[in-house]
Computed example of a mutant assay.
Amino acid sequence: MPSRSRLLSDSLLSAMAALKLSRGIPTIPKCTPVFSSFLTSERNLQPQPPPPLIGEAAVASQTEEERGRWSKLLLFIPGAISFGLGTWQIFRRQEKIKMLDYRKKRLDMEPIRWNEIGSLGHNMDSLEFRKVICEGMYDEGKSLFVGPRSRSISGVTENGYYVISPFIPKAGDSDSVQRPILVNRGWVPRSWRNRSLKDSRPSKKPSDSKTTDLQVNGGSIWWKFWSRKPKLSKDTEHTEIPVKVAGVVRGSEKPSIFVPENDPKSGQWFYVDIPMIAQACGLPDDTLYIEDINENASATDPYPVPKDVNTLIRYSVMPQDHLNYTLTW
């Protein structure tokens, strides 16, 4: 028989357990040694935070981060440049379209007579790409050549020059120009410039020719008398028939960085600079400059070849080319 004290302790323990269950206090079972070892091993498998970098390890980590930033930047720069160039090509295309429309409208207008320009009060800067009709005479002695400029004939390219001559009024003719202008008469072969340079050179040793004449003719007074040429009067000198020119008002050319500078002293003209050419011809800086577009060229005398009107509404890089460049970028 169990003792009385043991029975009392067992009943007390059962009462305390019942009281805990009624209050909702969980009882923690005792862990077995196997379960406790499993928990310890699981804690050991969890990743531990890396130790702080010091010294060379920290410097190497910063270097790798900087390299990553630079590589991203180098990949971004080409894309940004391509985007910028493509956008610029789009804007440039729109500008070309507007300029071509402007030129076409100006060329479709009725031609203006040069003598009427002053009376109508036209601004010279606003006359570009307007057709002009004028009458007068060419001053061949002051012609100059701009070039070289190539021209393709039946697939064969030939180098030549643009010949620019002062167009002066004819005395006593009310229909002729009232003041001189500059006219780009068109393209001529290289031989024209060579012949002009040869004619402009002064003759060598003029005294030798006089000596030869005296030796041949024996210094005869009668020979001097008969060899005299009659002097031409001013009316006889200016018997040329006025020329009618149909042209388009143009401005100075804008050369690229690869085009050399003009050298008026040596007669080298690489691009059209109206004030400089006007000064070389003895004309004012604001002299009007037109390009001959007369299509009625003579078969027997084809030179100079006037400019084609269609070349005035063309660019070396057309709007379609800008669109192709945009797609390329």
Rank of each mutant, 00 (worst) to 15 (best):
H122A: 00
S71D: 13
F76I: 04
Q48K: 12
P49R: 05
S119C: 11
R190V: 05
K20G: 08
R23D: 07
D10P: 03
N44H: 13
S176I: 12
V259Y: 00
Q279R: 04
L288H: 01
D235C: 07
D173I: 12
S316W: 07
P302L: 05
V177W: 09
V272N: 01
R250G: 00
R103A: 12
W226H: 08
Y162K: 11
R113V: 07
P264F: 03
V309M: 14
M137W: 00
F83D: 10
L85A: 01
K72M: 08
L73N: 03
V216G: 03
D285Q: 06
W114P: 02
V156A: 06
V132Q: 06
A60W: 12
W226E: 13
P255V: 02
I164T: 04
E237G: 06
Q320P: 06
Q89M: 05
Q62V: 08
D125M: 09
A171C: 01
W329T: 15
S209R: 08
E64P: 05
S61D: 12
P180A: 09
W226T: 10
R179K: 15
W269Y: 10
W187A: 00
W223C: 01
I181Y: 13
P319R: 13
S196Q: 04
S154D: 15
Y102A: 08
E128M: 15
K104F: 11
T328K: 10
Y161G: 01
P47C: 03
L100C: 07
I153A: 09
I90W: 09
S196I: 00
F38G: 11
E42N: 13
S152Q: 09
I168P: 02
G84A: 12
R103F: 13
R106E: 10
D263A: 04
P29G: 11
V245H: 04
D321N: 14
M109G: 05
F76K: 08
K210E: 13
R4F: 06
T236L: 05
L21T: 10
S22Y: 03
G267H: 00
P255T: 14
K104C: 12
D213C: 07
K142F: 01
T287Y: 03
E253N: 00
L13M: 14
W88V: 10
G218F: 09
D308M: 12
L232Q: 13
S152E: 11
F38S: 07
L323A: 11
D308I: 09
K231H: 02
L127C: 02
G68F: 07
R130V: 01
D199Y: 03
P306H: 13
P206A: 00
R106F: 08
P230N: 08
R92C: 06
G247W: 00
P284V: 04
Y271E: 01
K104W: 15
A297P: 04
N123K: 13
